[in-house]
């Protein structure tokens, strides 16, 4: 009996959802979507390869934005991770909650939103992009690294403690060697993600290839958009390859 009641509620909810969806959709637009898509693709070809030379600079900006942003995120994220990890934090009551709050607030805001805010504050350009990427990376690096720190083998730490080593010595001699592989993996993986994110940041004015993309879309220059898409695709491929190589070497 209870099962039938559940089914009834589910079906009613489904019907209600469909109604809301129906009200908010203009079906005429949906019906001719295939035709529209075909038309758009038609206008994107043939690609206008002549714009390619003017893309190198913004592409380079994008890669630099990702790299410097990752660096910023690592420089701030690593100390935050040590403050957040239960076994290395100087104070469970003060430092740890603060560090965790920093990590959560960094993670809960997308780089695009950070960039939107920062472009308003700093004006458009690469600097806003770098800081946006950096702020988003702090949480990522901080969270994954502090989990790695909490999972270190306590026997090794105990052995170093037993020699009469001080707290900071324990940190660099017993804990750092254990988390190095995790750290290298996290940093390179985040760099890889940041390349993709920084390609988008230009859409809100934070410099790089995204700015170019935005300009071409607003001018309805679809053959240029095709070239930009291709350039982004190749860059992401290259960054994946580089990060895979680095990870293979270090770990």
């Amino acid at each position: 009996m209870a099962i039938w009641a559940c089914w009834l509620v589910t079906v009613l909810a489904l019907v209600q959802c469909w109604n809301i969806l129906n009200e908010n959709t203009i079906w005429d637009f949906v019906y001719d979507a295939p035709a529209q898509a075909g038309d758009l693709i038609g206008r994107m070809f043939p690609p206008r390869w002549s714009v390619l030379p003017s893309l190198w600079q913004p592409l380079w900006d994008t890669v630099n934005m990702a790299t410097l942003g990752t660096l910023l995120g690592v420089v701030i994220g690593v100390p935050v991770a040590f403050l957040a990890a239960r076994n290395t934090t100087p104070s469970v009551l003060l430092a740890r909650p603060l560090a965790l709050t920093a990590i959560v607030s960094s993670r809960s805001i997308n780089a695009l939103i950070w960039a939107l805010l920062l472009v308003t504050v700093l004006g458009p350009g690469v600097l806003a992009g770098i800081i946006a990427i950096g702020l988003r990376s702090i949480g990522f690096v901080g969270k994954l690294l502090y989990e790695a720190i909490e999972e270190v083998d306590t026997k090794q730490v105990e052995a170093i403690e037993a020699t009469g080593a001080s707290g900071p010595q324990r940190l660099i001699y017993a804990i750092v060697p254990q988390i190095m592989p995790a750290f290298a993996g996290i940093a390179v993986y985040r760099w890889d993600i940041n390349i993709r994110e920084s390609a988008v940041l230009g859409l809100v004015g934070a410099g790089g290839i995204g700015l170019q993309l935005n300009a071409s879309v607003s001018r309805l220059a679809w053959p240029e958009v095709t070239v930009i898409f291709a350039a982004i695709l190749v860059t992401v491929f290259l960054s994946e390859w580089v990060s895979a190589q680095v990870r293979k070497r270090i770990i």
Binding site: Q156, T163, M180
Partner: peptide
Amino acid sequence: GMIFQEYALIERL
């Protein structure tokens, strides 16, 4: 000096 059952060396050093 302390000596451990599972050696407790720093494995990556």
